[in-house]
Design a protein around this nucleic acid. Structure first.
Lengths: 115, 115
DNA sequence: TCGTCATATGAACAGATCTTCAACTATGAG
DNA sequence: CTCATAGTTGAAGATCTGTTCATATGACGA
């Protein structure tokens, strides 16, 4: 039984799981760092000002959730968004919250539960 | 100093905060329940199969984060998404994760590191 | 007023989570 | 082989968070 139109409870759990991973400031910063070109662990650590160990722990979770993908190149391991869909999803979410609301109107005036 | 192109650390924290709230399955289901018409607490509790008390606790957090908005009507209190921007944001995020990935390919096939 | 329904709130507990530290593996250079 | 660099992993601890239970508040009807 779905709790809302057009989404199953299972999907809700999957959705919550992604949100939970992105819900930690440190981990989110790690993900944001990977939005551009593939980047190695020590660079992520430097940019985010987090310890390499902590970054690695976060990366493991993000990898397990298939949000990030790893690729070894010599001694270093480079991380990137797992695929195009994940990149779209995260980019859009970031844009939504970062922007002060732009294309708003379409149905701005509707159901208003009486006073 | 921003950790990624086009987003400040403050925005990242704000973003993480929203994700964190949406990252709990129960709380997410509460939010999803409010996507449609304004709905009262006991109905949310029924639909989500959560105790009224727990629902109320979650609603308080969601209200504080300005994700939901409350409106009293007699003995009942109805909840809705706080504003159109929040509705867009959440609707889009749900759509992104709910859909089985649409425009995927472009870079789907490539190296696989992990041994 | 009293009683009841609808919500809200506070305390308390169990379980999860972030972070650190130390130790470990893997790769490449000399 | 030995060493240094890059990353990973596990244990441990402090903190946070979700949930429940009991109690309180607010609103309406009798």
């Amino acid at each position: 039984m779905s709790v809302s139109p057009s989404i199953t409870d299972d999907q809700a759990i999957e959705l919550a799981d992604m949100f939970r991973l992105l819900g930690d400031p440190s981990r989110l910063r790690v993900v944001l760092t990977c939005l551009g070109a593939p980047i190695c662990v020590s660079d992520i650590a430097t940019l985010t000002r987090l310890s390499p160990s902590l970054v690695s722990h976060h990366l493991r979770l993000l990898r397990a959730a298939r949000i990030l993908r790893a690729e070894r190149l010599g001694k270093q391991v480079f991380y990137t968004l797992a695929d195009h869909h994940v990149r779209c999803t995260i980019t859009d979410m970031v844009a939504h919250v970062a922007e002060p609301a732009e294309t708003i109107d379409t149905d701005a005036a509707d159901v208003n539960v009486a006073a």
